[in-house]
Amino acid sequence: MGIARRELLSWGAATAALAATGARAQGTPSVIRIGVAQPAIGNPPGFYGSSVSIAHAKGWIEEEFKKDGLRVEWFFFKGAGPAVNEAITNRQLDFAFQGDLPAIVARAAGLKTRLILATGVRSNIYLAVPPDSPIQSVKDLRGKRVAIFKGTNAQLPINRLLEANGLTEKDLRAVNLDTATAKAALATKDIDAVFGGLDLIQLRLNNTARIVYTSKGDSPIFTRQGHVLVTDEFAQAHPEITTRVVRAIVRTARWASDDVNRDEVFRLWARTGFPFEVWKEDYDGEPLRVRFNPQFDPLLTARYRDAVEQAYKFKLTRSRFNVDQWIDRRFLNAALKDLKLETYWPEYQADGRINGAS
């Protein structure tokens, strides 16, 4: 699995480990530091749901830089996107894989980053309740104790979903809980419902929860978006290295987008604790190219513009900013050209249609 750092790190431990890397050397760096807005799970430790997670499991970014003697270090954050933002603020990461909302909050606050690659896009959200709960739909959540992992890329689509059903977070007895704590609280009925990801499918398969809503098959505005970003400082100082990191992930995305590899992708992710059947259900009927598409096409760019407006509307940020100036396509375009993949992934228009389709 290469020389990547794979141990599960709490935020406190991650801060200490990252600080130990010291100041960045002048010229070519000796290490590339990648932050992941998820904890590492399983044996060997890994994460899931993106081309970046597959590159990590396969060691393909390490392979890209092996001949240069350049190390790749991975840091995993139980505190998700907000914890990643803190590490970037403290100049302890060069790249990060996280969701749209935490990156938007940081950018609106002045953190200098660039979006360079899409991954983990259009991930579904789910709403689960205890098996014997009277709750049958989102509309039934008024006045209920509902867990939401705030500050993550699930919060915006959840807020949009609530709004579409005539509700806001203020109409709920919303509690901010991380994923593991929320699932435990649902089992003990300390909460009435929980919004989350495909891990809630596993609760249903174990007969410990009932799913009353999924964004699967619903509007893409109710799905979660993810990306890889780089700090302005690193991109300016090391554009060639940045392009090579992107190229390694794009090569991974091409492999993962091939439906011939579907079962292997799900088996890799099953190592992180969610069974093969969970991944199969979540992706059922959906081409892998959809979620592994690395491009910020018009549809995804529109989603990020909307997310900036929604974050401001819901008072999660205090300012707006220009998304088109935030997205830096140069590295991705160079990688796509080098790998001859300029037309491999379909490009979606802002209205959801594929370019060229009537």
Rank of each mutant, 00 (worst) to 15 (best):
Q92P: 07
T113C: 05
G81R: 02
K78Y: 05
K112G: 02
A96T: 07
T113M: 11
L101K: 06
A106Y: 03
W74S: 13
A87W: 10
F97N: 04
G79F: 01
L111W: 00
I88R: 13
L101S: 07
K112M: 04
F76S: 14
F75E: 03
G81V: 03
A87P: 13
Q98G: 05
I88V: 15
L70R: 05
L101N: 06
L70V: 07
E73R: 02
T113L: 11
W74G: 11
F75K: 00
V72M: 01
G79N: 07
D100R: 00
G69V: 09
K78L: 10
G81Y: 01
G79L: 03
D100K: 03
V105I: 15
R107Q: 12
E73M: 02
T113I: 15
D94L: 10
N90L: 14
R71H: 11
A103L: 14
A87E: 09
D100M: 06
R91H: 14
R71F: 07
A108R: 04
A83S: 15
L101T: 05
K112P: 00
R71S: 14
F75C: 03
A87I: 12
A106S: 13
A83H: 00
G110H: 10
E86M: 09
W74Y: 14
N90V: 03
R91L: 06
A103K: 00
V72D: 01
A106F: 05
A80N: 12
E73H: 04
W74L: 11
V105P: 01
E73I: 01
A109R: 15
F95L: 09
A103W: 02
T89M: 11
A108I: 08
D94S: 08
G79R: 04
A83D: 01
A109K: 15
N90M: 12
A103T: 11
F76M: 07
D100W: 02
A80E: 13
P82V: 04
